[in-house]
Amino acid sequence: MFEFLRRLRRPPTPIADAVWRDAVDATPWAHALDPQRRERLRELSARFLHEKTISPIGELELGEVQRAQLAALCCLPLLEFGVEGLRGWSQLIVYPEAFRVNRSHTDAAGVLHEWQDELIGESWDAGPLILSWADVLADCEDPRAGFCVAAHEMAHKLDTLDGLLDGTPPLPRPWQRQWARDFQLAYDGFIAEVDSGRETAIDPYAAEAPEEFFAVATEYHFSDPRLLRDTMPDVAAHLQRFYGPSPFA
C-alpha cells in the first residue's frame, strides 16, 4: 500500500510521441478531436496509465499502444470533468472477448434464482472497470454505430462518484435539479416507447434503469450525437455541457 501511494504522488510519465500517435490513429474519437482537446486527452491518459493497473486476462497481450488506446477511451468522458473522474478505483481488467458472470436473486417467495450473463463490459462500485478487448476493437472499427463500451462503463464510474448509482453524476446543485428533471422525463417517455413494442432509435437497453439510460445516452453522445440530438434534445444538451462537444458533432 505504501508503494502504491508513493507511486500516485509521483507525476505521471508522459506518453511517448510514437506510442501516442499510434494510439490516436487506432482510436477514431481521439483522432477526430481538435489539437487542444487531443493534448488534454493525452495528459489524462498519462494520468490513467500512472494510476491504474491494466490487467489482461488469459493469453491476451496488450502492448504500449493498446494500453494507451484503452486509457484514451476511458478518459474521453473526462475531457471536461477532469482527473477527478478517475477517483475511487485502481484496476482495468481486459478480457479477450465477452465474458460470463454468475448472477443470483432471491425472489419475494424466498426462492433463489441463479443464472449467467454474458457481458462486454462491467463497472464495479469502488472496484475495477472491466472491458472486452474484442468489443473495444469493434467499437473502433465502426465508431459511429451508437456503441462505445468504454464510454458506457466510464459513465457508471462518474455516476457513482456522489455515492449513488442513479443516472446523475456529481453536478452543481441547480444543474443537478435540471438534469434530474430532464433525464427523468426523457427516461419515462423512452420506457413508454419500449413498452409499446415500437422499434426505438436508441438501444432499448437504455430502458433497464436510470443509470443505464445515462450510460447508453453517453455512448450515443460520442458515437452518434446527431441521432441523440434528434430523439432526445434535452438529454443531448446536458451531455454536451457535461462531456464537451462530441468528436463527431
Rank of each mutant, 00 (worst) to 15 (best):
M1W: 13
L5M: 10
R10F: 03
P11L: 00
P11N: 10
P11S: 09
A16S: 15
D17L: 00
A18Y: 06
V19N: 13
V19S: 13
D22F: 03
T27F: 00
L33F: 06
D34T: 13
P35L: 00
P35V: 12
Q36D: 15
R40E: 04
R42C: 08
E43T: 15
L49K: 06
K52P: 06
K52R: 08
S55I: 02
S55A: 14
P56R: 00
E59I: 10
E59P: 06
L60M: 04
L62Y: 03
L62G: 05
E64N: 11
E64S: 14
V65F: 07
A68R: 00
L70S: 08
L70I: 03
A72V: 06
L73S: 05
L73H: 10
C74N: 15
P77G: 06
P77I: 00
F81C: 04
G82N: 13
V83R: 09
G85E: 05
G85T: 15
G88D: 14
G88E: 14
I93Y: 12
P96I: 05
A98V: 15
V101K: 05
R103E: 15
R103Q: 15
S104L: 01
T106K: 11
L112I: 15
H113L: 05
H113D: 12
Q116A: 12
G121T: 03
S123A: 12
D125S: 04
A126V: 14
I130E: 04
W133E: 14
C140K: 04
E141W: 03
A145S: 13
G146N: 04
A150F: 11
M154P: 06
A155F: 11
K157C: 09
L158G: 14
D159S: 02
T160E: 12
L161G: 08
G167L: 07
P170T: 07
P170N: 02
R173Y: 11
P174G: 05
Q176F: 05
R177E: 07
A180F: 00
R181Q: 07
A186V: 14
Y187G: 08
Y187V: 08
D188M: 01
D188H: 02
A192D: 13
E193C: 08
S196T: 09
S196I: 07
G197K: 14
E199V: 12
A201F: 13
A201M: 05
I202V: 14
A206D: 08
E208A: 04
E219H: 05
H221M: 03
H221L: 02
F222I: 06
R229D: 07
D234L: 10
V235T: 15
